[in-house]
Design a binder for these strands. Structure first.
Lengths: 138, 138
DNA sequence: TATTGTTATACTCTATAACTATA
DNA sequence: TATAGTTATAGAGTATAACAATA
């Protein structure tokens, strides 16, 4: 029952995220937003480090970065200290886009929490973290 | 923030689901479980009706049913009243498998809720439904 | 004409295995 | 030898468009 309700809520939230961006003429997934935030806050990190932080395989990351790079949001620089790694960073355009995206995400967050009081939001986040902890105890 | 926490919890729950089935030597996704439950409780329903209930396109459903049918869990019967539709039903083997699956899902649900009291579970479900309602208000 | 199921096609996310360049 | 990134490949979920059978 809990798993089902969680899945439904998550699905509605995902749809709202997509809709928010769509109506603003932008296109981004929650995963892409999280990736951009990570790169922004940790400029220079490698693809391996990013993949680890996102919990995905390094090969999965490649086409995702390709797309973001084609969109001019992000760049792979060659690391001067380790020729094997790419130092990731947002482009100036990527920084500007991320600021726009962050505004949209705030509006989205506001809407998904619109039926909850501030206290309820805190309780919900707390309970979700307990679910996370419980599920992790394999 | 809420969106992110929700996504993380959902991801951990999904992993626990997969792990539970894996360790029991079974293979099933939450979506497949939901589908089997729907067919079990509404024997004879059509693919269109099932797709609508699942919120997916009818063309998406086809390969999913193909796989379940290949596994001998489910059958497409020709409807006597409407030659266009298939009446879906679980096979006897599918019924037995679903009983096994339901046991595993109960164990899984117990684990993801292991850090929560009964009262907290009720509150969490309530709050998640409010999130669902808020996100739906597009 | 409209509906149901199927197929063809196309993206995206996901992974594993093998390859290249570098350490 | 080991690590980082890439490519090839494969499977699953998702969709749209076109098609055949049926209503």
């Amino acid at each position: 029952m809990l798993g089902y309700v969680l899945r439904r809520a998550q699905s509605a939230v995902f749809d709202d995220f997509a809709n928010t961006f769509d109506k603003a003429g932008e296109a981004l997934t929650p995963g892409e937003f999280g990736l951009l935030v990570l790169v922004d806050r940790n400029a220079g990190l490698s693809q391996m480090a990013l993949a680890r932080a996102l919990g995905i395989d390094r090969s999965t990351l490649v086409p995702i970065l390709d797309r973001l790079q084609e969109r001019g949001l992000l760049m792979r620089h060659r690391s001067p200290t380790d020729g094997r790694t790419h130092a990731l960073a947002l482009t100036p355009n990527g920084e500007k886009a991320l600021a726009r995206f962050a505004r949209l995400v705030r509006a989205h967050e506001k809407r998904i929490a619109s039926q909850l009081s501030a206290a309820e939001i805190r309780v919900l986040i707390d309970l979700l973290e307990k679910v996370h902890a419980g599920a992790r105890s394999l």
